[in-house]
């Protein structure tokens, strides 16, 4: 199963999607649903909401595949951004804010450290290495902006550091991540 999926190139999937081939959605689901679900669930912190949003991601991919430009981004990156944007929009919405009380950063640090996915992921070789490449401080930083949707200014305020420092630290953290993948 896994081998078969990897044989199909991203280009073929995109072509099939543009031809409105429903099977392509199935392939995309098998390939990326756990990654996208991971992103969404980490942002909205509710599996139920995350499942609703995951459906929306695939609907958006189906409807908007013509606006995807392969020269600009990998398909998974494009999809990942759709997933993140949907999830961030959700937690910024009024109804969601009311239903979920905001947690302190201290709580949030605990969540990261407790998260089993962060510590073990048997399917993903090198994940532990990757996480370890980041300092706890960097991990919190990326989580705050990427998974909690804080702006640069909000992050600076929460952490009590200057705006420029947030910028520098994020750049360093992402550079560390890039080292692993290049």
């Amino acid at each position: 199963m896994k081998d078969r999926l990897q044989e199909i190139t991203e280009e073929q999937i995109v072509t099939s999607l543009k031809q409105k081939n429903r099977d392509a959605v199935g392939i995309l689901y098998d390939k990326y649903s756990s990654l996208l679900f991971g992103i969404i669930a980490r942002i909205v912190k509710s599996d139920e909401t995350a499942e609703d949003l995951l459906q929306e991601v695939y609907v958006k991919v189906w409807k908007n595949i013509d606006s995807y430009d392969p020269s600009k981004a990998k398909l998974i990156t494009w999809m990942g951004n759709i997933a993140r944007n949907l999830a961030i929009d959700k937690i910024r919405s009024k109804e969601y804010k009311n239903s979920l009380q905001n947690r302190d950063i201290e709580d949030y640090v605990n969540i990261i450290e407790e998260s089993p996915a962060a510590a073990f992921n048997p399917e993903h070789i090198g994940v532990k290495d990757m996480i370890n490449k980041l300092t706890p401080e960097q991990r919190i930083l990326i989580d705050m902006v990427y998974f909690r949707g804080f702006t640069q200014a909000e992050t600076a305020e929460k952490l009590g550091v200057p705006l420029g420092t947030v910028k520098t630290r994020i750049r360093t953290a992402i550079n560390n991540l890039r080292d692993i993948y290049t």
Partner: peptide, 18 residues
């Protein structure tokens, strides 16, 4: 694009099956 790829790859460490 390279930055975004790195972030998505990082996100893979939080994979979760729906």
């Amino acid at each position: 694009s390279a930055i975004q790829d790195a972030l998505v790859s990082y996100s893979a460490s939080f994979k979760k099956n729906p």
